[in-house]
Amino acid sequence: MEKADIFARNRAFWGRERQELLAGKSLFVAGMGALGCVVAEILVRCGIGEIVIADRGIVDPPDLNRQTLYTLNELGESKVGCAAGRLRTLTGQTRVVPAKVSIGDDDIAGLLAGCDGVADCLDNFPSRFALEDALPAGTFMVSGGLLGDYGQLTTILPGRTARLKDLFARPDNTGRVTPVTPPIVFAVGSFMAQEILDNLGGTPQLAGVILAIGMSCLFTERVPIDAS
């Protein structure tokens, strides 16, 4: 199938120039759990040129309520291997690079080099802070989180916005089983994907702003952060 056919509806909305811009971009997705799966799938369907997906985990039964790239057929298999296989079948237009790494333990500088941006979809604070420390200059990071049916996201621009490390006072979710419902996963993942598109286009909406989303009351709210 022609590439032009696959992205016809995208191009009809945002035009040929933006479609071509996306084809030349690369994204690093840290963590291929709930948010990583949604973000990666949306960016591939948007037509991004390359996506590097990083996770060290395997597919477990409790993942299947929200981690959309995995099925019963992949239980016990490597997440990045399964996700790469699925992502490559969606459009055939994105180079998918699986990386079975532990962020915070393994050196990811080589994987980050050449990426235009990072999606922070990690489930623990030490790894998120290590990822932030490893961000190359000029790279953006869209960072998201979930709890129950509530979520938050923001854009980190090194040297220009507050750091994650400064934002979170004494965070500790180590070893906890986090309650999460499917609707908030899709909501936050979709907002993250849109914010990544906007960063790639040079117009982030959430640099210095936290977007809070609550599903029970269907509320969204922007909370400004003063980094001065």
């Binding site: 979170f168 006072a169 906890r176 980094a227 001065s228």
Partner: peptide, 16 residues
């Protein structure tokens, strides 16, 4: 506050 928090005072990241 047992799991921490984001604390903003007049928009500035702060702590407990």
């Amino acid at each position: 506050f047992s799991d921490g928090a984001i604390i903003l005072i007049n928009g500035r990241p702060s702590n407990e």
